[in-house]
Amino acid sequence: MEESYPNIIMYAAPFLIFFAALEVFLAWYQEREYHDRKEVVTSVIVGLVNVAINLALKTLMLFPVVWVYNLVPWRMELNWWMLIPCYIIFDFASYWAHRISHGSRFWWATHVLHHSSDHYNLTVSFRLSWVQGIKLIFFLPVMLFGFHPVIFFVTNQIAVLFQFWVHTEYIKKLPKWVEYIFATPSNHRVHHGSQEQYIDKNYGATFIFWDRMLGTYEPEVEKPKYGITTPLKNKYNPIYVNFHEYIDIVDDVKKAKTFKEKLYFVFGNPTKIAKKKIPKLLRQKKRKIKSQ
Rank of each mutant, 00 (worst) to 15 (best):
N156Y: 12
V154A: 08
I289F: 11
E2H: 09
F207G: 07
E77V: 02
W130N: 00
K172A: 15
S117W: 07
V266I: 15
L22W: 15
Y264W: 12
T216N: 00
I289Y: 13
Y120A: 05
Q197V: 12
A205G: 15
I88C: 11
W67L: 14
S116M: 07
N234A: 04
V112F: 03
V68Q: 01
V266T: 06
R37E: 15
H115N: 01
V24Y: 15
L122Q: 09
Y236I: 06
E3L: 11
P219F: 00
G193V: 08
V250K: 07
N187R: 05
A56M: 14
P219V: 07
S125R: 00
I134K: 04
E169V: 02
I181V: 15
A274T: 14
L26P: 02
F259P: 05
W107V: 00
L62R: 03
H148E: 11
A159L: 04
A20N: 07
N70K: 10
K290M: 06
W28P: 04
E169R: 14
D251G: 10
N121I: 01
W80P: 03
L60N: 02
L83Y: 00
P149W: 07
A13Y: 12
T123C: 11
P14Q: 02
N156Q: 13
G47M: 05
H167Y: 05
S43L: 08
S116R: 02
P85F: 02
A27V: 10
I89W: 08
C86K: 03
E245A: 04
V166R: 01
W108A: 08
G227R: 01
F92L: 14
C86D: 04
E218Y: 11
W108F: 15
K201M: 12
T168I: 02
W81C: 01
I199C: 08
S194K: 13
P231N: 05
K290P: 06
K285N: 12
T59C: 01
P238K: 04
Y170L: 14
S117F: 02
V142G: 03
F209S: 09
N79K: 12
